[in-house]
Amino acid sequence: MESFPTELGILTCLGILAASLWIPYIIGVNTSEAGSPADIDSQDFSRPANPALQRPWVHRAYRAHLNLLEQFVPFAFLVLLVDRVDGFTALTYWTAIAFFWLRVAHAIGYITGWARLPARPIIFTLGWVCCLIMAYAVFAAAL
């Protein structure tokens, strides 16, 4: 039986994170005080609440989820391409692990407000670098 590559396991964990990061936002939206500006748009469920009118941590939770999706989709695509060309190496192993923990740190830091300038943009940029490394691995394996 062929072993399950760590990169695909990390991708699975990232998928779970992406599929679950909506939870803090929904908790925040549903615990706002009735009649507050944040609640006006969503009282009758006719349209979603405006994230900009939510409490700061709730708005940050919304943005953290979007930021994860912005990097998860390209990263997942690249990991699957590396798998397709049989290009997993020590570099892709450590890149996948680094990407996962960068995304966890980004989500926690963003939602709590702990990761401010310049930490949050640096974490996001390092995630982008992980995507570039995975793209390099695709081309390196395909040549």
Rank of each mutant, 00 (worst) to 15 (best):
D83W: 09
A90K: 14
W101M: 06
G35A: 01
H106P: 05
I133G: 05
I97R: 05
A98K: 03
T89V: 10
A98G: 13
A142I: 14
I10A: 02
F139I: 10
Q54W: 07
W128M: 13
F45P: 07
M1C: 13
Y93T: 01
G35T: 00
A142E: 14
A38N: 06
W57A: 01
V58Y: 02
T6L: 11
A142Y: 12
Q43S: 13
V58M: 00
L21D: 11
M1S: 14
C130D: 01
P24G: 01
R84P: 13
F4I: 10
F100E: 08
T112Q: 06
G9K: 03
I23A: 09
F77W: 11
R55D: 04
L11R: 00
I26D: 14
P51M: 00
D41V: 10
T95H: 05
S32T: 14
S42G: 15
A64Q: 02
I26T: 15
P74I: 02
L102A: 05
D44T: 15
E7Y: 00
I16K: 03
R84C: 14
F124Q: 03
A18I: 09
G9Q: 12
A119R: 12
W94G: 06
S42Y: 15
S3W: 14
T95V: 09
L80K: 01
D41Y: 06
Q43V: 15
I23C: 09
L81H: 07
L11Y: 05
T89Y: 11
S36A: 05
L126C: 02
F124R: 04
L81S: 04
L8Y: 00
L8C: 07
Y62M: 10
S36L: 00
I10D: 06
D83P: 10
F45E: 15
V129E: 05
V104F: 02
D83S: 14
F77K: 08
F99L: 07
T112E: 01
A98Q: 04
R60E: 03
R103K: 10
L78N: 03
L53P: 13
L102S: 03
T125G: 12
A107F: 03
R84W: 15
A38W: 01
S20M: 09
V129T: 08
H65L: 11
W128N: 14
E33G: 13
I40C: 11
C13K: 14
F139H: 12
A115T: 02
I26W: 11
A107V: 07
A140T: 12
A76T: 09
G28A: 02
L11I: 02
V82A: 02
D44N: 14
L17E: 09
E7L: 03
E70L: 04
N67E: 06
N30A: 13
T95C: 08
L91K: 11
I108G: 06
T92C: 09
S3G: 15
D86A: 15
C131I: 07
T31M: 10
T12R: 12
P56V: 06
P48V: 14
G35L: 01
V104W: 00
P5N: 07
A140G: 10
W22K: 08
R116D: 02
M1Y: 14
E33F: 12
Y93M: 11
I108R: 07
L11V: 07
N50F: 11
W57M: 04
P118T: 06
M134E: 04
I27P: 04
T92Y: 00
Q43W: 12
G113V: 02
